[in-house]
Design a protein around this nucleic acid. Structure first.
Lengths: 230, 230, 230, 230
DNA sequence: TATGAATGAGTGTTCATTCAT
DNA sequence: TATGAATGAACACTCATTCAT
């Protein structure tokens, strides 16, 4: 399956606004004006993500976003300048909290392999096969037409991710866990199978399902040597 | 109905940089009616590839394709049923000869590593950073909206590629070149960095150019162990 | 989806000559949103009728309808699904109230001949040579390509009209006003000259104007015998 | 049924050219250049009639005419200036021989009723429910947009037909066969049921088949009085 | 004379954006 | 602030007409 729109896949700030599109306008009389606005905005973001992922930028209709978000078409323009900037902001809005969470790294206890395995494990759960995975594909798809998106994604996610991986790899080399010293020059090699898994799930899951977890384990064995006990 | 895909339509479509949108109609005054038709078809394929890669399916205008191909809009419909099937056929038209060439494998002389290196080397030259690389990105981008394209690509390219890689890996294991036996179960790991390089060049080359050749070398070192002499 | 046909959409559509393509947008500044919508719909119906009658279905351009109705082309699609269903609905919209009026038959006072003469007289005034007459010609013209229109017209107008005429004829026979008993089997004979008059006015009025009233009188004389006093 | 494309419905001059569209170009080597051209022209006329009747002027594609006629699209332009004048000429081409035949009236032997019955009978066989009947409907449909067609049809068919009917009616009155003297002023009344039958077959045959022969008999009874023996 | 590939103006339909309510 | 009717530019696709062969 390609996408299981897990609630967990969305930062809680966003989840808060994702409500039943058909809810009566009076449902939440207690919320302040500002809260209502934030909720609507969140609903739009939510809906827009789904539509953009499902259809791509150009083929997505604002009408559908509005319908899915349970707002009028005009309302979108109270929150976003136009379709393009909505798309650009969207990526930021969805990615920022993810980065924030990843940046708040888990305590660097244990071996480097343990760290990376923990990382891979959460990547498996939270990205591969989820809507966030599709977002990655969306960025691959639209990046060339949205340099600002590619820029942002490179700056916030890719370069940081690469840097973090490099640091881990260097630590692994220093500790003797990793033999291949040149790996630190190409941390992309470390994450490549994970990225491939993301894309594979989107495109070929139905042709040949991929056991991403097992593949990542094999890959780590390759880098760290086979584990004695697992 | 679509005209039978003349061989003449392919050569220029393969040449990565081959395009000459403004070429005068006098280019080949001696050519026969059929030859002219094949040339036009090839020009359309050429132009369409460029436009689809640059803008994606939905955002590409047939007007632009026609202009770039130097034909009238109506002419496109003499060769393709509509925009969608043009896109689908296009992928086939461009991919088929590539597959054909790869299928005509080089003589399996030398070590497995040599074989894979030869493979990587031609991949580097002929895919990464070329229009064919962009085609891969295009398929990743549009695959979910064009199941027939994803199907075709999986069947003709991915499944064959995976099978070929698996065979090589197993040979490598048998010959003792590769230590990690489980690699044969996930040939994706072998090709992942190459795919990542393709995508990287499309998206992030301008942020941080990637020395794909060197990266692939490191990756092979990881798999085969470091080379004694290089 | 099409909006519910508001009653307000009909009156102007019925008035044979009512059209004011260039009426300023200020015509009804006090009208509510819904009223304005109904007015627009009516203007479109009005304009579309004129265009379809003047050019036939295929040759009518939505652009022209929009221009004549004083709305943007896109507005038409807020009221009608597409050109075809617009045409089909149009016939219904214009015919339904006519049928409604005819169904509310006049009190069956006086002789059968008087009844039929009253009928003929209102037909003369309200159909022959008016836009409604042209609508009949339009249905004859487009019926074979719009079975649903032919079906509707047969069901709502023709079969009812035939039945009503048959009832009158039988009454006339019973009362001894009509001698030709078989006429009840072919009420078409009774209405044929009226239909011919409708078509004649559309096609040949300029070659040889037809005094439809007098012709119908002669026809009734044929059926009922010559009137003693007229 | 609306149209049984009887061979008999076409003047023999036209029938001659109606051949299998897929016939080889060499089939008739004996025919002279001019004969071949005439045959092609006839085939085009034939095909065009069918298409125009089936779809109306605007919706008919020259492509389809060419295909049906078994000629190339360009060939049509060797015989006709453009689509419009083809349509106009077509009506002339098809109608002229019909008129010619009718003008060569049968010997005026017997009673007026016999004459008219003979006439009705041949009208029944050769017009109602045949392609010629559909041509009448086509003229009704397109007449307003093709004044030249309406003019021609009025001049060649309608006015002559009316005149002929009037002459017959006057003869009938003179001979005492027809009582209603005013009928001579409106010969339309005499032919109205026949015309209605033509239209009915095109539009409503499937809803309620009409026994045109019997209807015409009743109509003649109305005019001439019931027949003693039949 | 006959062909049919090529043309490009024209048309139905969509959809991002605006704005009166 | 929110709405959704209205707009009109834009686009895919068609088809009468032309013309090189």
């Amino acid at each position: 399956m390609t996408r299981k729109p897990t609630k967990a896949a969305l930062p809680s700030a966003i989840r808060a606004g994702a409500k039943d599109p058909a809810r009566s306008k009076e449902e939440a009389p207690a919320s302040s004006r500002a809260t209502r606005a934030a909720e609507r905005r969140a609903a739009i973001v939510e809906a827009a993500m789904d539509e953009f992922i499902a259809r791509g930028f150009a083929a997505t209709r604002l009408d559908d976003i509005a319908k899915r978000a349970g707002v009028a078409k005009g309302t979108i323009y109270l929150h976003f300048k136009d379709k393009e900037s909505m798309f650009e902001e969207l990526v930021r809005i969805v990615i920022v909290p993810v980065v924030a969470r990843l940046t708040a790294l888990p305590p660097p206890a244990g071996s480097v392999r343990d760290l990376i395995e923990a990382f891979a494990s959460s990547f498996l759960k939270e990205v591969i096969g989820t809507r966030r995975g599709d977002l990655v594909r969306l960025i691959v798809a639209e990046g060339p037409r949205f340099p600002s998106v590619a820029d942002f994604y490179y700056r916030e996610v890719v370069s940081r991710g690469i840097a973090a991986m490099r640091a881990l790899i260097e630590l692994g080399i220093a500790r003797g866990e990793i033999r291949e010293k040149d790996l630190a020059r190409y941390p992309q090699i470390l994450v490549a199978p994970a990225m491939i898994a993301v894309i594979w799930q989107s495109l070929f899951a139905r042709h040949a399902p991929l056991d991403a977890q097992e593949m990542l384990r094999v890959h780590l064995d390759l880098i760290f040597g086979e584990r004695r006990t697992t």
